[in-house]
Design a binder for these strands. Structure first.
Lengths: 261, 261
DNA sequence: CGATGTATTGACCAGCTTCAAGTAACGTGG
DNA sequence: CCACGTTACTTGAAGCTGGTCAATACATCG
């Protein structure tokens, strides 16, 4: 299947023509650094389209060697790899502001797929955007490196969880981390929890557990009163610090402002 | 413990003054791209010292927020994270040419430690080298991003192993991957195997297994004739393609030329 | 109102961990 | 040169964490 087919938006959901990056609603969040006007201009020139995709849609196919490059503007997605017999490992969950397709472009090591968890909006860039960013404005090149290194740090944490933590600790760590990452985007500051679109199968695949055991682990966390499900599949953590202790996770999670490309 | 203490070389092993990068023996290997003279000059200006360290020495302490930046010139090392109760996850094995300390510099997510596996020689850079590389020469900035993305791809593979593969598959995948990565540095082209400095404990910590089970798994691989130990703890793989099939690993492993900074 | 995907639960069992000991290899100091 | 400490490797037995199999409930949706 060609990438172009994958990227063509479903008819009713085609986005309006690319709006100026300076009006991107994401940039208003304190989570992101504020770029200079020059930086904004360079980024804007590389922007090719804003596209909408449905939940469960494939954004990048495993093995694609000419995958596109985009930034997630709204919604959740996940990166994954599968073995020949179908076993799937979710590598990382991607939230708004995450830069997608970098690994694919740079290295030809066995690649990964990307699939949406919710309806998403993405900002698609020119294929050679990574190089152009570096060439045009070193500060933006530095930002790309930052983003890449930052995702590496998330991978480190996931690997630590999957390799060393027990099932209970793993799920606790995952929920806590995702909750913290999603909080800056929650409408009401997260008082009623944050929308949490992962199924138990996703949790299982992310943490290297079976579906059944992921379910039992979630029940156990619920039984201890550490997680509560609100309406609209919202995740509420009544006592994050207790969860963090259970998971042996550093708390609170500090998130310094990050670049948005 | 301060980083300066960690970095001061043991008296007898102090390296000679930094030699010009253009004579770096690593660069002669076809594994690495050949830089322009301008690139070499910029890199050379950022070079601060060449240092030797013994096997088992700590290069970067977990939690250090001002960790140094270097390139591994010779020898093996590994990145790791530990939980409060001592469980250790080895994140990645580092071989000559690998750039160390990038994650640490960019993000303040919980950090990792780096420890040598063999005696090593490293090329230490100025603290702000990452930014300088981007500013002085975009092509070098791009190389840094490439290296970061490439390490991300290795992490992806490790996460897939630890999350989805059985113990036998995991160990097979690890040995095969390391063998392939070490091959370009083997003196005789690897005909007598490659030096393999990991202990069973390292293998266990890298793959999320207990020491005992790592040992049993190695025995099983040996019993099937898939791995052989030569003199000087050299690893010989009589039938790499059979190992790859067992591990569900893409084979052969392609390694395109990579930048060396 | 079936069809499909997700959640739920019990029974069984196996892969892996833990515990416990013992062996081998190597460097150090007496 | 040997005793000894240290580190890595080895092996068996027992048990637990988490996987597999199977079936049911529940929801949403065309």
């Amino acid at each position: 299947m060609s990438i172009d087919v994958l990227l063509s938006p479903t008819p009713p959901s085609r986005a309006a023509a690319a709006a100026g990056c300076e009006h991107c609603p994401l940039r208003r969040l304190p989570l992101f650094t504020t770029p200079s006007s020059t930086e904004l201009e360079v980024i804007g020139n590389l922007k090719r389209a804003e596209l909408d995709h449905e939940a469960g849609e494939l954004l990048i196919a495993e093995g694609a060697d000419d995958s596109p490059l985009f930034t997630l503007l709204a919604g959740w997605a996940f990166r994954y790899k599968t073995l020949a017999d179908g076993r799937r490992q979710i590598l990382n969950i991607m939230l708004p502001g995450d830069f997608i397709g970098l690994q694919q472009k740079m290295s030809d090591a066995a690649s990964h797929g990307v699939r949406t968890l919710t309806p998403v909006r993405v900002c698609r860039f020119a294929r050679d955007a990574v190089w152009t960013l570096h060439r045009e404005l070193p500060s933006l090149g530095y930002d790309v490196t930052w983003l890449s290194a930052n995702e590496g740090a998330l991978l480190d944490d996931n690997l630590l969880s999957v390799g060393q933590r027990s099932a209970l600790e793993r799920v606790a760590a995952l929920l806590l981390t995702l909750h913290a990452r999603a909080l800056p985007f929650a409408a009401d500051g997260g008082r009623d929890g944050v929308v949490f679109p992962l199924t138990q199968q996703h949790i299982a695949d992310a943490m290297g557990l079976s579906l059944v055991h992921a379910h039992r682990t979630l029940r156990q966390l619920g039984g201890r009163g550490l997680i509560v499900w609100g309406p609209g599949s919202r995740l509420i953590l009544p006592d994050p610090s207790a969860l963090a202790r259970l998971a042996h996770l550093r708390w609170p999670l500090v998130q310094s402002p990050r670049p948005l490309i």
